[in-house]
Write a protein that binds this DNA or RNA. Structure first.
Lengths: 329, 329
DNA sequence: CTGAAAGCGCTAACAG
DNA sequence: CTGTTAGCGCTTTCAG
């Protein structure tokens, strides 16, 4: 149980005051070059590393970023979380992970998060609160919604341009000869779901078409599988389905092939959204809209670091249509 | 930007000293019942919530548990992480998430983690360090390996009994008439991989059989897909493959069906390990060995909370064979 | 430019 | 049982 090396130890070895060491470590205030060198040397020799807890106590700000996640079963989550923590790690920031309970309002969670004096909060859940942004603003903590946005609250938000993605999906289906189409969405009350649906509808309208049906449910494989069964029963001539995300799409494809005996894409085309790893598995080879994950993360970090520089609240980044084998040529 | 409520404020309102408030909040030391009631009332009225940073600074221990993850692409990770954070949340403990860079030694990571005065460290990466357990022991921080264990270092470890699982898989394949079998493993130098391989080999030996080949690679879909191609070329009469995990197994199944035109399970049986959500998707319906996730997490939390009560270092929990449609009846 | 000194909010002896 | 008193390790005035 060895004692930690403190700034006092470094100061003693360098023959300076502890305050001088602090100034060097915090890169704050002026220190003569030779003194700074002596201090750095002493710190290195002693293996000194600053105590983040003590620093946070006094400054009221840590280098920890809170990430609030919710629907963890969705395969997009681990991909996004992993890329995010990796990016944060490269900036020497840690990630405090909060798991919102199903149905839990973010508003109830944020005050608890704020107690940790986090440097910022990134919210990846679908269920939103209305006052969370306000709490964070009061505390001076940057608050960024990732992957979706809120109509009100004035929070920063970074997301894929789902509307454009939905439109592209519609155009691709129209261009490949589909006419009787449906949208199988995820959580009704979420911005990606709304935008994907609206974009899809808008894209069909360009061709003078309209979806025969528009379903909402959850961003899950099981929902996709369930939804398509009823859908195909009501519309036996259905020739295309645009899905809220890849998980739903996989469920739809599987149900079409294994529950309903339809050929994908020959009889029914299917398009997903996200481009999760499974989308490219040989069993699916899903045509989908890839989220611009790298760009979304970069934008999120910029917002976290310099929220004041950025007047624009909503940042929608264009996705990329990935054409594989669940749509016709 | 409203001021936080501090113990001093509570003390003033309750007409007691700040120390009395601390004793009530920390549940440490004696306080008269009526005084305690007054304090609780004042705290509630003011909306007081303790400052975890200040508390950590003085006690040298936070209520934060560090979770170190690595191979995030593997679908078992989000399932495990999600269940773990959920369990931790129920104990009012937070999760500090560390993403080990690919190939990074845990030993280099742990000292940085320890600076946060975490209440415990749970390691879910496959790459191990040799001194991490020692560092943690020196700092008095419980250290638990999750999902795999180390031969040396004396760290606590909680994992599925992969050896028993491998043996069961072998028995099931033998019982369903397979004779020419191979093991397609993941990361060679990891305990789950070794145990699954050894268990499988032992299980075959019971029937007087031996695997025709034994490959190691990575716990990924792509590796499974690649491995089976060469394997089937060298052993055209192969009739079963036991895989290091479900991701590999999905790759093997897909390659057999779509790259090699074989029928699963009629021509080749495939068994995975973990029972991730995808294993039950209709495109796979994978026979697999389910990890006892709930039990593993419960055991991990117990070890974290009372490490001194537990003499046994290694806790192997039995998995459950889930028979689906990638093995014959 | 540097050191002394005052805390950040809380816990933990220690008297009373 | 309760209040007083030191700090935890660090940042940040404030003199010098």
């Amino acid at each position: 149980m060895q004692k930690r090396v403190t700034q006092r130890d470094v100061a003693a070895r360098a023959g300076v005051s502890q305050a001088a060491v602090s100034r060097v470590m915090a890169e704050h205030g002026y220190v003569a070059e030779d003194v700074r060198a002596r201090i750095m040397e002493a710190a290195a020799a002693l293996g000194y590393r600053p105590d983040p807890v003590a620093r946070t106590l006094i400054t009221g700000r840590s280098n920890i970023v809170a990430v609030v996640v919710g629907n963890v079963v969705n395969p997009f989550f681990p991909v996004a979380l992993s890329a995010l923590t990796e990016a944060l790690r490269q900036e020497d920031r840690e990630v405090l992970l909060f798991n919102a309970a199903p149905g839990q309002n973010i508003d109830d969670l944020i005050p608890g998060v704020l107690r940790y004096k986090v440097a910022g909060i990134i919210v990846m859940t679908v269920a939103l609160g209305s006052r969370a942004a306000e709490f964070c603003a009061d505390a001076g903590v940057p608050y960024v919604l990732f992957h979706r946005y809120a109509e009100q609250g004035g929070a920063f938000a970074v997301a894929c341009d789902s509307g454009a993605g939905g439109r592209e999906a519609a155009r691709h289906l129209v261009a490949t000869g589909c006419r009787t189409m449906a949208y199988v969405g995820g959580l009704e009350d979420s911005s990606p779901n709304r935008d994907r649906a609206n974009g899809f509808i808008a894209g069909l309208r360009e061709a003078g078409l309209a979806p025969v049906e528009h379903l909402n449910g959850a961003f899950t494989y099981d929902w996709g599988r369930e939804a398509i069964n009823g859908l195909l029963y009501r519309h036996p001539d259905l020739d295309a389905v645009f899905c809220g995300d890849d998980a739903i799409a996989c469920g739809v494809v599987d149900a079409l092939r294994y529950d309903l005996g339809r050929k994908v894409p020959d009889e029914v085309s299917v398009i997903g959204f996200d481009d999760v790893p499974q989308a490219n598995w040989a069993a699916y080879r899903l045509t989908t809209v890839r989220q611009p994950l790298e760009a979304m993360i970069a934008q999120t970090l910029t917002l976290l670091k310099h929220p004041e520089d950025e007047a624009r609240r909503l940042h929608l980044l264009p996705g990329e249509m990935i054409i594989r084998a669940t749509t016709r040529r």
